[in-house]
Nucleic acid binder design. Structure first.
Length: 900
DNA sequence: GACTGTTTACGTGTGA
DNA sequence: TCACACGTAAACAGTC
């Protein structure tokens, strides 16, 4: 308690006792251990703090009202007094976050953004206190006309948030600064998480300093009469946190409490030279932060906005750090977002990639390596209803080798089908550029661009059209026309420049398109629009007007709608999409979010205003509890656990453990959700039970994904499935035998109701309907299959005998007959063409009870199991899946004669 | 006895 | 409105 004694020696007794009392009441969860968790600022730190809170900050307005010059120290003293006059006690004012770290940092060059102040309040839940807080804040601003205080809410605030739930009771008023250094005032009754990483966990108690200022405004930096200033760390161990700051280390406690923004902060620290204290743990943390980011910021528009806001407000003109930040974020998302929707991930990666080039000044873009390099699979059924979900698209790298600055294309979603990989690299690079709204094409580049497009048009455009018309309802002629316009403008510009004409001609180009544009969240840059899918196939007459005769870029052209009405209609459509999405989110998460009234600046706006929609989104994010229920179904969670396991199969306990490790929500009420997990495993045909091998005794079986159920979640999108996976053509006798086996204590991998409706509404009637399979057809198919299998076995035997005279096939008797390979091939083709459902033939399923029991020894030996299945199954029996290598029939393919 | 697995019943939200 | 996907509870039986 020595700290307190020193601290109190400079303050009068009444203030001291009050401050001590305040410290105890400052209900930031943990008990404060002053010996272990606090320190005192030294001289240089104190001077730095003085300088920081005694330097003016410009609070800018959103309108024409004057910019206010605010000195934090004076402002805080006034705020305290104003609140006190209104009957509200504000105490324990602390400087926190990056600014506090800046004060403590011995180098003094640690970057920080906002000035965050924590102010303790007894009760923020009442409307009266909330009203007093707002009044006090705006009364403390140096406004000449106090009658306009109510306008300040809109004009001088960047954010105004009130969080009240079981974890948090606090409110925030953020006074906006044009440079992004906002004055953030958090009035806290209770806050569960006050920091993200150890290095920003410091809180400097300002009460003695404010008292000092209050007593004497004659402070000089060379004064020797400094008050003692205490600094705490909510990290739990002050010295450790300080060491992390000194050595630029990243550490975190209770990462499950981190919110989505933690990922950005983490990448920010990495970009500034920080390093994880534990790389292994940090890998898990990265995975968690990725998951959390995409839970908190679910739609791509919000993600883009969050990222853009962070980038613009945290890096200023430090493009090097900015690029490193984006690079780090890109890498983390690429490698650690294991259970995100493939579509979400690629969208966000593209956003990062685009931002890495578009935000940079033109002179730097040529030096910036495009981030988007990987080939990714799209699954866009949800987001783009018009897209054929069965088609996979890949995006390839941008013009990484080009010496020219990256040209822009009309859409940020220029992709080609995977099948077009045979197209020349030139073509792929051409159409897969990340959109760069800030860049423009030079004349030479336009020439090159047009030439390439023309030369590849016949090869490329049909594929492009397939994709674009299905996903964004862009027609081929639109692209043709766009190219034509570019070329025409290019010629015109050439003509103009050759004639040295300085006339400001503004050629306009009209073309029809039924795509929908929306203003880019990138803010004020003219002509930045992003392409979003349309909800309806409405046709807008859009006009592109080129205002810049020096350079032309489709994305730098101003977009003008034919009339205002159409514009409004389009905005309505766009916002309706988002609105519906957020409404769904609210519904989905209603069980996990307590009532949390949130107030933001744009709340009074019309519902069809996109900004309101975004506000709604932001509100939703803020409501999100740290331990909220993840948006994944139990089937999704099980699938994740299985797919992420080494052998593509897990025991029940391993599934439990995975879920609890991954999602803190499931560390509670275990009996309830684990019962549901067991129910899901048993009930759903997509999960199959694989018996343990004798050399691996233990409780319970392994659970694997059914071979054909590996892509239930649309290439990684673990949200609600469009269609439930069913095995509804199983033979009646198989069901009966399974039941008998179960009664006899034999594990049966297919022991599931074949007629499940997804609910408990299964009835004998419905079962009977499913039992009414066409037995004759099945019998025919089975006979055909038997013939084929016999031939297949003969072929394989022949192949094995050729490869290895000593090889044995214990399952198949040696039939050393010469097979007419041409006939076999023909029969194989015939077999391939017949309608064949592997589930119709449970005896041939790798998960059939007979198969598994007979070959239990393969249970834990994927290679042996593969080989066996390969020997037993035709190529077409199961579609090979890249995501299920465990059951990939590679051995069978290898055994196929290649000279057929 | 705890765990694992199956089944039934019922409720809710979603989308056609 | 209805079928379906999903969640929850509970009873029951088998396994370790």
């Amino acid at each position: 308690m020595n700290n307190i004694i020193q601290y109190s020696s400079h303050i009068d007794n009444s203030n001291t006792s009050k401050s001590l009392l305040s410290l105890e009441r400052f209900s930031f969860e943990q008990q404060i251990d002053f010996d272990y968790n606090s320190s005192i600022l030294n001289l240089s730190q104190t001077k730095r703090l003085f300088s920081l809170i005694d330097s003016p900050i410009l609070i800018s307005s959103k309108t024409t009202l004057p910019t206010l010059t605010v000195i934090p120290s004076i402002f805080l003293i006034r705020l305290k007094n104003e609140a006190q006059q209104r009957g509200l006690d504000l105490h324990d004012i602390r400087l926190s976050g990056g600014a506090a770290s800046f004060v403590l940092d011995p180098t003094g060059d640690l970057a920080f953004r906002d000035l965050d102040f924590l102010i303790s309040v007894n009760d923020v839940t009442t409307e009266l206190n909330w009203s007093i807080i707002k009044q006090a804040v705006f009364a403390s601003l140096p406004l000449s006309n106090q009658e306009n205080q109510h306008l300040c809410t809109e004009i001088y605030t960047d954010k105004m948030i009130r969080i009240i739930n079981e974890y948090d009771r606090w409110c925030l008023i953020s006074l906006r600064n044009a440079d992004g250094r906002n004055l953030e005032l958090k009035f806290v009754e209770h806050m569960k998480r006050q920091y993200q990483f150890s290095v920003d966990s410091f809180q400097i108690l300002l009460d003695p300093l404010l008292n000092f200022f209050y007593l004497t405004r004659k402070f000089h930096s060379n004064s020797i009469h400094f008050p003692t200033i205490i600094v705490l760390s909510s990290y739990g161990n002050f010295s450790e946190a300080l060491q992390h700051l000194h050595y630029r280390l990243i550490d975190v406690k209770t990462p499950e409490e981190l919110r989505g923004g933690g990922l950005l902060k983490y990448c920010d620290l990495i970009a500034r030279g920080f390093h994880p204290t534990n790389h292994i743990q940090m890998k898990d943390l990265q995975r968690y932060m990725c998951s959390r980011f995409f839970i908190d910021f679910r739609d791509s528009l919000t993600q883009e906005q969050v990222l853009f806001k962070y980038v613009t407000s945290h890096f200023g003109t430090d493009y090097d750090v900015r690029y490193r930040f984006l690079r780090c974020l890109y890498d983390v998302i690429s490698t650690d977002s294991v259970w995100l929707s493939g579509f979400e991930r690629i969208c966000f990666l593209r956003t990062i990639s685009t931002m890495s080039s578009s935000i940079m000044p033109l002179k730097l873009t040529s030096n910036v390596k495009p981030l988007l390099q990987s080939t990714c699979i799209y699954s866009s059924k949800k987001s783009f209803p018009s897209c054929n979900s069965t088609t996979k698209y890949s995006s390839i790298s941008s013009l990484s080798n080009s010496k020219h600055q990256t040209p822009s294309v009309p859409s940020s979603n220029t992709l080609i089908k995977s099948s077009s990989s045979s197209s020349s690299e030139k073509a792929a690079n051409l159409v897969l550029l990340p959109s760069s709204p800030m860049t423009s094409l030079s004349l030479e580049q336009i020439d090159i661009f047009v030439q390439i497009v023309n030369s590849l048009r016949t090869e490329l455009f049909p594929k492009l059209n397939n994709f674009l018309s299905s996903m964004f309802t862009i027609r081929l002629h639109t692209l043709h026309k766009w190219i034509f316009n570019i070329k025409r403008k290019s010629n015109k510009i050439k003509t103009n420049s050759m004639s040295s004409s300085s006339s400001t001609s503004k050629p306009s180009s009209n073309y029809q398109t039924n795509c929908c544009y929306q203003q880019s969240p990138y803010g004020n840059n003219v002509g930045q629009y992003s392409l979003i899918p349309t909800a309806h196939h409405h046709h807008h007459q859009q006009q592109l007007v080129n205002n810049n005769v020096q350079s032309i870029s489709p994305t730098s052209l101003s977009l003008i709608y034919g009339n205002q009405q159409q514009q409004q209609q389009q905005q309505t459509n766009s916002s309706n999409i988002l609105q519906t999405r957020y409404q769904n989110e609210q519904i989905n998460d209603k069980t996990s979010n307590s009532l949390t009234p949130v107030i933001t600046n744009g709340q009074q706006q019309s519902m069809i205003n996109p900004s309101t929609t975004l506000t709604t989104s932001a509100n939703f994010r803020r409501n999100f509890n740290a331990c909220a229920k993840p948006p994944y179904s139990y089937i999704s969670l099980i699938t994740m656990a299985i797919q992420l396991s080494a052998n593509r199969m897990c025991t029940l306990a391993e599934i439990y453990q995975f879920i609890m490790d991954s999602f803190p929500y499931y560390r509670q009420n275990q009996q309830r959700w684990q019962n549901s997990i067991r129910h899901s495993l048993s009930f759903n045909d997509c999960f199959v039970k694989v018996p343990r091998s004798p050399d691996r005794p233990g409780k319970g079986s392994y659970w694997a994904l059914h071979q054909e159920a590996t892509n239930m979640f649309e290439n990684g999108c673990y949200l609600r499935r469009q269609k439930r996976f069913k095995c509804n053509k199983r033979l009646e006798h198989d069901r009966d035998s399974n039941n008998n086996n179960r009664r006899n204590g034999i594990n049966n991998s297919l022991d599931k109701s074949t007629t499940s409706t997804g609910s408990g509404q299964r009835s004998p009637i419905s079962s009977a309907s499913d039992k009414s399979c066409d037995d004759q057809l099945l019998l025919m198919q089975q006979q055909q299959r038997s013939i084929y299998m016999q031939q297949q076995q003969q072929q394989q035997q022949q192949q094995q005998s050729l490869e290895s005279p000593d090889s044995r096939n214990l399952q198949v008797p040696a039939l050393a007959t010469n097979v007419d390979v041409k006939q076999l091939k023909q029969e194989q083709c015939d077999f391939n063409q017949m309608s064949f459902d592997p589930h119709t033939f449970p005896n041939y399923s790798p998960f059939a009870i007979n198969t598994l029991i007979m070959h239990q020894g393969f249970g834990d030996n994927p290679a042996a199991l593969n080989a066996y299945y390969a020997s037993q199954l035709p190529q077409t029996a199961f579609v090979s899946s890249s995501s299920s290598d465990y059951y990939h029939h590679s051995a069978m393919y290898a055994s196929q004669p290649t000279t057929l």
